[in-house]
């Protein structure tokens, strides 16, 4: 089976800093694929090159059997990748409902003249946009807050609103950048069930997360980055025992000091 997303030797540098170095991986359709690593490992950079916010230095992405690199962010979204942001980027002054309605932009058509003349087709589309947006708010569990200012929602609800907005674009791949950040255990548990449900409904999920319980419970496979390089990949349980992963997270064990120099060179 051809994978949904294939990354081949993806590299990105900022000046002298190698944020990503020859990272390769594949994500199968229907999978929840975790992306973990210490702070500064290059996880968010990977999201940004994937979604077109940054340009790749080298390597390639292929999504749904067609190349993806070099596309502008809106074209990437049109191809079927929707994302959330690590530091929530909602349209804070608009209502929760309007946020999700904006997510429908991509899959709707009304233009200036349709809007000006308010044709029957435009009105029908508007009603459909609002209806779908309310459904999605319901789906993530914040329908009651539909008319509240997005920026005034509690933190966990903002995270879920961002997911609803991303789902509104009808993606094939949903990329979540630390959705559980700042959540208490109860909220994280609700989020875990939401992500599981999204996958059960047929979506593929790419998940950056620091909350290890979430990653270990949810993900089918996990990719571990450190200093922009792939250091491990596999089932969560296997990755957890991987010596290099432990080293990346916990630092170098005293007896391994002699080998420490070789790590950066590798």
């Amino acid at each position: 089976m051809t994978p949904l997303l294939r990354a081949e030797a993806v590299s990105k540098s900022f000046g002298g800093v190698r944020a990503l170095h020859k990272v390769s991986f594949t994500i199968a359709a229907g999978e929840i694929y975790g992306l973990i690593g210490p702070n500064g490992a290059g996880k968010t950079t990977l999201f940004n090159v994937l979604t077109g916010l940054y340009r790749l230095d080298a390597g390639r992405f292929s999504f749904d059997s067609a190349p993806l690199e070099g596309l502008a962010p809106d074209k990437v979204a049109a191809r079927g990748i929707a994302r959330t942001f690590q530091n929530i980027r909602l349209f804070a002054n608009l209502s929760a409902l309007e946020n999700v309605m904006i997510g429908r932009h991509l899959r709707t058509r009304a233009g200036v003249f349709g809007a000006m003349l308010r044709t029957r087709a435009t009105r029908a589309e508007e009603a459909a946009i609002e209806g779908r947006a309310l459904e999605l708010l319901d789906y993530v569990g914040i329908r009651a807050r539909a008319n509240d200012r997005a920026g005034s929602l509690p933190y966990g609800d903002q995270r879920r609103l961002e997911i609803a907005r991303a789902l509104a674009t009808e993606p094939k791949l949903l990329a979540l950048d630390e959705p559980a950040a700042g959540m208490n255990p109860t909220e994280a548990e609700v989020l875990k069930r939401l992500i599981a449900r999204i996958r059960a409904d047929g979506m593929t999920v790419l998940l950056i997360e620091h909350n290890m319980r979430l990653v270990m419970n949810l993900c089918d496979r996990v990719l571990v980055l450190d200093y922009g390089e792939r250091i491990a990949e596999g089932a969560p349980a296997a990755v957890q025992r991987d010596a290099r992963v432990i080293e990346a997270y916990l630092g170098v064990a005293p007896e391994d000091h002699a080998q420490a120099g070789t790590r950066d060179a590798a």
Partner: peptide, 22 residues
């Protein structure tokens, strides 16, 4: 309208607007 909301999105956060396919 859809266009008016897209304008609002650009005004509020251009990066997020692009990521939403605008």
């Amino acid at each position: 309208s859809r266009i008016g909301r897209a304008w609002e999105a650009v005004r509020e956060d251009e990066t997020a607007a692009r990521a939403m396919g605008i």
